[in-house]
Every structure is written in C-alpha cells, then in structure tokens.
C-alpha cells in the first residue's frame, strides 16, 4: 500500500531517538505489525533499505513481529482470532465478523551501538 510513507514515518522516529545522546549506529529495529494492518512485508523491506540510506540505521536489520487478527462475531458474539480477513468465525462458522484488533503498526524497540 504505502510502505514508503510508513518507512519515512519510522525513519523520523528512529532519527529522533538516535539523534540524542552518544548513539553511533542503529543495528536492529523491531516493529509490531497486525495481520490486518494492510502492510506488505516485502515492500516494507524494500522501502526500508532505500529510506534508511544515510541515516544511523542504514544497514540495520528490520524485524517484523506478527500480531494476530482479532474479530468480533456478530452471530455468536465471541471475540475470535482469525488469520485472514475473510475467514469465517472458527466458533460458529458465520461470515459476519468485525475486526477489533490486528491493525497495529508500532515501532517496538531498537538496538543501538
């Protein structure tokens, strides 16, 4: 979708945090990405290498931690975990599911030298 914009957002935060103190290099950045966040991981990896050029995080490893997709079933009213947006309710088989988790896009932490 807009992985380049997302990477620019990550770079701004990383630059801010790495710009303070005596950090010379960022070696790893960990993100938490929900299954329904609409993020295309290979595109984010590609954008990462391009966008981080010239920053303290150039060459840093990008690690993406998957967070599960959650939805509320409007037939059995259970909150269920699903892998794909159009999966039926694992509880009752209904197709009327409203996502209520799994759209997270967070920068969790980073390792620095």
């Amino acid at each position: 979708m807009h992985e380049m914009s997302l990477c620019e957002g990550i770079r701004r935060v990383v630059d801010q945090v790495a710009g303070s103190g005596d950090i010379t290099r960022v070696t790893r950045v960990r993100l938490e990405i929900g299954r329904f966040a609409g993020v295309e991981k290979p595109a984010l990896e590609f954008a990462w290498a391009v966008v981080m050029r010239g920053s303290k995080a150039e060459g840093a490893t990008l690690e993406m931690i998957d967070l599960p997709g959650r939805a509320l079933c409007y037939d059995c009213m259970a909150t269920v975990s699903i892998d794909h947006r159009l999966d039926p309710c694992p509880n009752c088989g209904s197709g009327k599911l409203m996502p209520d988790g799994g759209d997270e896009m967070r920068i969790k932490d980073m390792e620095v030298l």
């Binding site: 997302l6 957002g9 701004r12 935060v13 801010q16 945090v17 896009m105 980073m110 620095v112």
Partner: peptide, 20 residues
Amino acid sequence: VAVGNMTQERLIEIETGILS
C-alpha cells in the same frame, strides 16, 4: 516530528505507532 528522548543502554524501547 517531536518525540521525547528515551535513550537507555543498548536496547531502546520505543512503543510508538508508525503513524503517530
């Protein structure tokens, strides 16, 4: 963007939304 300083030893917790 303005984000507070959060420097620690080697691992820095950020916990910030990418679209914050």
